[in-house]
Design a protein around this nucleic acid. Structure first.
Lengths: 63, 63
DNA sequence: TTGTCACGACAAGCGTGCTTGACACATACG
DNA sequence: CGTATGTGTCAAGCACGCTTGTCGTGACAA
């Protein structure tokens, strides 16, 4: 799985901490998703997509 | 999280076993998702959406 | 009755998703 | 210089996602 979270976050001018707070998760969780350490859960993926006004499929790409 | 997997599966005329084989997961996994025991992982949710030609958001609804 | 299929559910085990807390490093700013 | 911010990463712990194997039940055909 690849994702565009970092690009979207930077385009929105947010730090990892700020995005984490908006999503109500820890900063480490945002960092881990951006760096590909693991995939988000389905509810978190949907929350990320909604935050950036995108669909899940637009942000998360199956390898 | 609510989902429409059962309705989509039945509309497609598939058994839980057949859908599980198509998705390459166990029958118990399909059953657990349909009965709401847990949410699928993100890759599995995307696979389910693709199988039914829907988006993730069309099938999985945040409470 | 016997066999088979679909479905629901349980248990044990393993890997992952997420947490808090901590540490290191680079960059920028007083 | 000292301090703050942003990021990467580690450890320990807990809950969830998924597995195989098993069992029970209802429906339905032979």
């Amino acid at each position: 799985m690849q994702n565009d979270v970092r690009e979207l976050r930077l385009a929105a001018g947010l730090s990892q901490r700020e995005l984490a707070e908006a999503l109500e998760v820890s900063r480490q969780t945002v960092n881990s998703i951006e760096t590909g350490r693991y995939d988000p859960s389905l509810p978190l993926a949907i929350a990320i997509a909604r935050h950036f006004h995108r669909t899940v499929e637009e942000i998360f790409h199956v390898d």
